[in-house]
Nucleic acid binder design. Structure first.
Lengths: 418, 418
DNA sequence: CGCCATTGTGTGAGGCTCGCACAAAATCCT
DNA sequence: AGGATTTTGTGCGAGCCTCACACAATGGCG
C-alpha cells in the first residue's frame, strides 16, 4: 500500500476536518477561528444533503437561512474535489425560473471502508457516500478467540481484500466492535469470547498498516451512526438506538452528535437495575435488565413452558408460534415485549428521546413485535402533554453495522469543530 | 419599571447572545458566521474565567492555544462595558517580566435576578457575576395552591422588591420551578400542589412585566447550572446532579452544556423502574425508583421500625440516630443509602457521568451519608478500567437553587451559537 | 546598568459571510 | 411571437474575526 496520498485525495481530505491520519489528537474545547467556520459550515451543508437528498444551492440557502452566495462558496471546492456533482436540471414546481441543479454525492468520490469485528468473524466492505455497499469480504475467526495476532491478521486480510477493489483510496476505516472500546485511545477494552483483544490498540495498528484515518466504536453506537447517515435516523434531531439479542446495548443521538460519555462509556443499558435484588446476572450483580430482556431469558422461559425449539428461540420463531396459536406463546411474547419495553421506558425517562430505532433480535419479530413493544412503552412512561413516543425497526443484519462503521468515519469527516 | 434600556446596558447586552428580551426565538441548527465566532469566543473566554478564577490575558491565550492579541480583542469590549475589570498587577512565578493584570468580573457589572418558585413560597434574589447573593426576598404562597393570579402576583411582588435594590437593571431573570416545565415555550407544565399553574406561560408574563429576558427551568436542572457556574461543578467537563428528598430528580452536564431533552424533558429519574411489578408508586405505576429512595420511603420504614420522630425523619436525623447507636438505625441508614445508590448507578451506566453532585436530603446526612452512598454506587456499577466515580455533596438549602436560577440566565448570555 | 523575560497593544494579511448587482434560463401573459 | 416575470447561480466589495509580527512597558538578574 502506497503511503503517499495523491494530490486530489489530499485536497478532498483537507476540505474535511481530518488533521492527519493518526488516531486521537482531537483539540480540546478551544476558541473558534474563521477557518473553523469554513469547515464547520462545509460539514453542515453536507449533513443537510444527507438529510434532504439531492438539493440545489438555492434550496439549501433558503433552508439554512443564509445567502445563496455563501452556499456557492461552500460547495464549489467540494465540486472541484469530486465529492459532489451537479445533477441534471430540475424544474421547480410552480412558476418559471431558471431550473435548479440539485447537488448530490459524486459516484467518483472516495468511498469509506467499514469493518465489523465480532468475536466469531470479521466483515469488511466499501461504502459510498450515498450509502451503497460495494466490496464485501468476510473472514471467520478461530473458535474461542485464541491469541491476538491471528485475529488482527484476519482483520488486516479482510481490509486488504476490500481495499483492493477500491478505485480510489478511501477516506478512512471505521470499525464497529462487538465489545467495550475506548474511543479516546482507539483501543479495545474487552471483547467477550476473545479476551486476547483486551486493551489492543487496533486503531493505531490499522492506521499504520494502511496509512488511513481509523475510527472505532462500540457496536450499538455504530448502529446509531449508520441509522443517522443512511437509515431511519436521517434528519431526526434526537433519537436512540436500542439493540437486543444475546446482549443489550444502546446509543443516543442529539444536538447533532452521537453521545459518547467519557472515554466512550455510556449506553451500557444491559446492566442497569430493573429488579433490585432480583435474579443473578452474568455480571455478578442482581436484577440487571440483562436478566429479563435478552435471548437468554427468552430461551430459558421457553424451555420452562416446553415450547418447540426452545433452545433456538428468537423473536421470529416466537411470533410464528403466536400466529399459529401455540399454547403459551402469546403470554411469553407479551412478557418478552414488556421486559424489553421496561429498559426503553427507563431510557426515555432518563434522557427523553422520543424516537427509538430497534436493532437485533426484536426486529426479527417484525411489525407485530415492534407494535407490542411500543404499546408497553407507552403504558410504562408517564404521559407528558404533547409528547409522542415512536418506535421503529432498524435493519437486523450485518448491513446496519457495516454502514454504521463507515458512518463513524463520515461523522469524523464532518466534525464541526464544536 | 422603565422599559427603555440605557445605552451602556444595551451595549453590554449586545456583547452577549441575547437577541431580544422575548422568550423563545432560538435559531435552529444553522450555519455559522464570523460574528457568531465573536460571540461564541466571548462566551468561551468568560466561561474560562469562571472556571479558572482571575486570569491574565496572556494566561488565557496560552490555555486556549490562541494568540494574545485575540484575547485582548475579545476582552477589551467587555472591559469597556464594565463587565470585567483588571485586577492589580501580579508577579508571575519565576523569572522577571512585566507583571500580569488578572481579569475578573467587575463589581459594577449588572447582576442577575434569580427566582425559586416552589409550591409553598417564592424566593427571589440578586446574584453578581462572581456568585454573591445581594438582595433576597421571600414571599409565602397560599396553602394548597389556589387560583393562579395570586401566585403570579406573589412572584411579581418578590421580583419587584428585589429589583428595587439593584443599582443597575439586571441582565435577566432566571426561574427555577419545582415542577415540570417546557423550556422551549417558557411555560409551566405541572406543579404538584399548585395545579392552577399548569400550562401558565410564566416566562412571557414576567418578560412583559419587567422588560427583561426570562429563562426558566426545572429545579434539579437549575441546581446543576448553579453548580456549574458557582459551585462544585466549575471546570468539570462532565457531571450529573441528583436531587433526593420528597421527590427525585436529576440533570446532566457535558459537552459544555446542560442536557435538555426535547422540550426540556429528561432527568425524570424518579419514575424509572428499579423493581418491575414492585411497590405501587404515587404515579400509578409499580416499582419506580421513587418508591424506595424518597423521604416517603424513609419515613415509612422508620415508622415500621419504631424509630423516634419517624414522621419527620430525614438524613440528618437518621445519621444522628446512627451515631447514637439507636437500635435499627444503622441498617435503615444503609438501606436508604443503597436505594439512592441504585438510581445513581443506573444513571451512571446509561450516560456515564463519573462525577455526581448530590443535593437535597442526602446532603443533610453529611459526609457519612455521602460516603455510604459512594460505597454502594461503586459496588453497583460494573468496574471499567481507569474509571473512578466520584460523589460529592452540593448545597442543600435554597441558595443552591437561587444561584442556579441566576445561572440559567448566565448560560444563555454565554450561548455559544452551536 | 545592561540583558532578558513577559505582558499587553498596534497594524496589516487572510478567511469567511453578506448584500448587491448581473447574467442565464425557463414560464407566463398579452 | 415576444416581452415581463421569476428563479438560479456568480462576481465584487464591505465587514467581522483571528493571526503573525513588531514594539512599548515593566520587572528580575548578573
Amino acid at each position: 500500500m502506497d503511503h503517499r496520498i495523491p494530490k486530489r485525495e489530499a485536497d478532498a481530505r483537507r476540505l474535511f476536518a481530518f488533521g492527519d491520519a493518526e488516531f486521537g489528537a482531537r483539540m480540546p474545547q478551544s476558541l473558534l477561528s474563521s477557518s473553523m467556520v469554513g469547515s464547520a459550515n462545509r460539514g453542515l451543508v453536507i449533513q443537510a444533503l444527507f438529510d434532504l437528498g439531492p438539493t440545489s444551492r438555492a434550496e439549501l440557502a433558503r433552508l439554512a437561512g443564509v445567502n445563496r452566495t455563501t452556499i456557492s462558496g461552500i460547495v464549489q471546492p467540494l465540486l472541484d474535489a469530486d465529492i459532489l456533482v451537479e445533477n441534471d436540471p430540475v424544474q421547480t414546481g410552480r412558476g418559471g425560473g431558471k431550473p435548479a441543479r440539485p447537488l448530490w454525492f459524486s459516484p467518483k468520490a472516495q468511498p469509506i471502508c467499514g469493518v465489523l469485528l465480532m468475536p466469531d468473524a470479521v466483515h469488511a466492505c466499501l461504502v459510498t457516500l450515498d450509502g451503497h455497499v460495494l466490496a464485501d469480504h468476510r473472514v471467520l475467526l478461530p473458535e474461542g478467540g485464541g491469541p491476538v495476532e491471528p485475529i488482527i491478521d484476519a482483520v488486516i486480510r479482510s481490509v486488504t481484500l476490500t481495499l483492493a477493489e477500491a478505485e480510489r483510496p478511501p477516506f478512512g476505516i471505521g470499525i464497529a466492535v462487538g465489545g467495550m472500546v475506548d474511543t479516546d485511545l482507539g483501543t479495545i477494552v474487552a471483547v467477550n469470547l476473545a479476551p486476547a483483544l483486551d486493551g489492543y490498540p487496533i486503531a493505531t495498528r490499522l492506521s499504520h498498516e494502511f496509512g488511513l484515518p481509523v475510527r472505532l466504536d462500540h457496536h450499538p453506537r455504530a448502529l446509531l451512526v449508520g441509522d443517522r447517515w443512511f437509515g431511519q435516523g436521517r434528519g431526526v434531531p434526537q433519537f436512540a438506538v436500542v439493540y437486543t439479542g444475546e446482549v443489550l446495548g444502546g446509543a443516543l443521538y442529539f444536538g447533532g452528535h452521537l453521545y459518547r460519555g467519557a472515554s466512550g462509556a455510556g449506553g451500557e443499558l444491559g446492566h442497569t437495575f430493573v429488579q433490585v435484588d432480583g435474579e443473578l446476572c452474568r455480571c455478578g450483580r442482581r436484577g440487571c435488565w440483562d436478566t429479563i430482556a435478552t435471548l437468554g431469558w427468552l430461551r430459558r422461559e421457553a424451555r420452562v413452558l416446553g415450547l418447540p425449539e426452545a433452545d433456538d428461540m428468537d423473536s421470529a420463531r416466537l411470533v410464528d408460534l403466536v400466529q399459529r396459536g401455540v399454547q403459551g406463546a402469546e403470554p411469553l411474547f407479551d412478557r418478552y415485549a414488556r421486559n424489553i419495553a421496561v429498559g426503553i421506558a427507563n431510557l426515555q425517562q432518563t434522557v427523553a428521546p422520543n424516537y427509538f430505532i430497534l436493532h437485533g433480535d426484536a426486529v426479527l419479530g417484525g411489525e407485530r413485535m415492534i407494535a407490542r413493544i411500543s404499546d408497553h412503552v407507552r403504558h410504562l412512561v408517564p404521559s407528558r402533554p404533547g409528547t409522542l413516543i415512536e418506535i421503529v425497526a432498524g435493519d437486523a443484519g450485518d448491513q446496519a453495522a457495516l454502514l454504521g462503521a463507515a458512518g463513524l468515519v463520515l461523522s469524523d469527516l464532518l466534525q464541526f469543530s464544536i
